[in-house]
């Protein structure tokens, strides 16, 4: 349990968000032009922030092991590359990943709580979480009960997150809001507030199973919620946009947004992650281009 007093405000009073304004602000970050050394720095940072993810019914130990090798050795042809931040898998694959990543600093993240729908009982969700942690998960990515949230049962959602947090023990908890199902930025803000107050270490946009997944305006609203929470409590919360960020250029736009909303303290993989499977290769391709001056064929980058 973290050393953190839990306060439950009236979440109906979360600040309101003007969608048009949020979209305009998000678009403005994309006007920043990231060139030369700042681009190189941004690409390295982006690579180090990736939660390399495989969340499919057809996942096997072999697939997970290959992904773990990729996590540790993104592209050995280029020197001086960071590893990714974590490998994100289903609970049944946590043990495999843990073993495969032994000796590295890469974390094992596991989705839990009846991912991706969250449509199960509290008991099942807690057991799911405890199993993942017992298998060695350093981080747990839970989903909130969107149905309960949309029905206005904020206390239910709050209590559930708090209970999962307790079940996590020392594992860090990422709370997935599944913003593509929430319907408005006001709701995104409200769900962010609930998650942070209930004990989330990270808030995360999406499962990747629902469209739209991460968008810049949604991430902006969540970053602003993190900022307000930080000013209110002094507690730093991490952010993980997930799903739909597959190009380096988009990743750099997100980093610009992070840099200008939360600033230097969040510009590390301890506080910001990209949940993505195909982003890594695009970042590697850009890094290879910066190093050699030429774009390489996609065939030079491993697909895992």
């Amino acid at each position: 349990m973290s050393e953190r007093s839990i306060v439950r405000p009236d979440f109906r009073h979360s600040p309101s968000i003007d969608q048009v304004g949020a979209e305009e602000r998000a678009a403005r970050f994309t006007k920043r032009s990231i060139k030369k050394e700042s681009k190189l720095q941004g690409l390295h940072l982006a690579l180090s922030m990736i939660d390399l993810t495989t969340l499919e019914g057809k996942d096997t130990p072999g697939k997970v092991k290959q992904l773990c090798y990729k996590a540790m050795h993104p592209h050995d042809a280029l020197e001086g590359l960071p590893t990714v931040a974590a490998v994100c898998v289903f609970p049944s694959m946590v043990g495999i990943a843990k073993k495969a990543l032994e000796g590295s600093k890469i974390k094992v993240a596991s989705v839990a709580t009846a991912f991706p729908s969250g449509q199960s009982t509290r008991d099942v969700k807690l057991r799911d979480t405890k199993y993942a942690v017992a298998e060695g998960a350093d981080e747990v990515d839970m989903v909130i009960s969107r149905g309960k949230f949309l029905a206005g049962e904020y206390n239910f959602v709050f209590d559930e997150i708090a209970a999962i947090k307790e079940a996590c023990g020392n594992a860090r908890l990422k709370v997935i809001l599944e913003t593509g199902e929430l319907g408005s930025l006001d709701k995104v803000r409200r769900a962010s507030d609930i998650a942070m107050h209930a004990g989330a270490d990270f808030i995360k946009t999406s499962t990747g199973k629902i469209q739209p997944a991460a968008t810049m305006p949604v991430t902006l609203v969540m970053l602003e919620a993190i900022r307000d929470f930080y000013y209110e409590t002094g507690i730093q919360i991490g952010m993980k946009p997930a799903g739909g960020i597959s190009k380096s250029k988009a990743a750099l736009h997100y980093l610009v947004m992070l840099n200008e909303v939360l600033g230097a303290d969040w510009m590390t993989n301890e506080w910001f992650r990209f949940g993505a499977s195909s982003l890594a290769n695009d970042v590697l391709m850009q890094l290879a281009k910066e190093a050699t001056g030429r774009y390489q064929s996609a065939d030079y980058f491993s697909i895992d």
Binding site: E3, S5, R32, K35, S38, G42, Y230, L262, A264, D265
Partner: peptide
Amino acid sequence: KKVAKKAAPSLKFNTAWEYA
């Protein structure tokens, strides 16, 4: 447990990543 009172929270901008 209550969180120990630290210095007032503040954000640091323009130090981590300067745009070329």
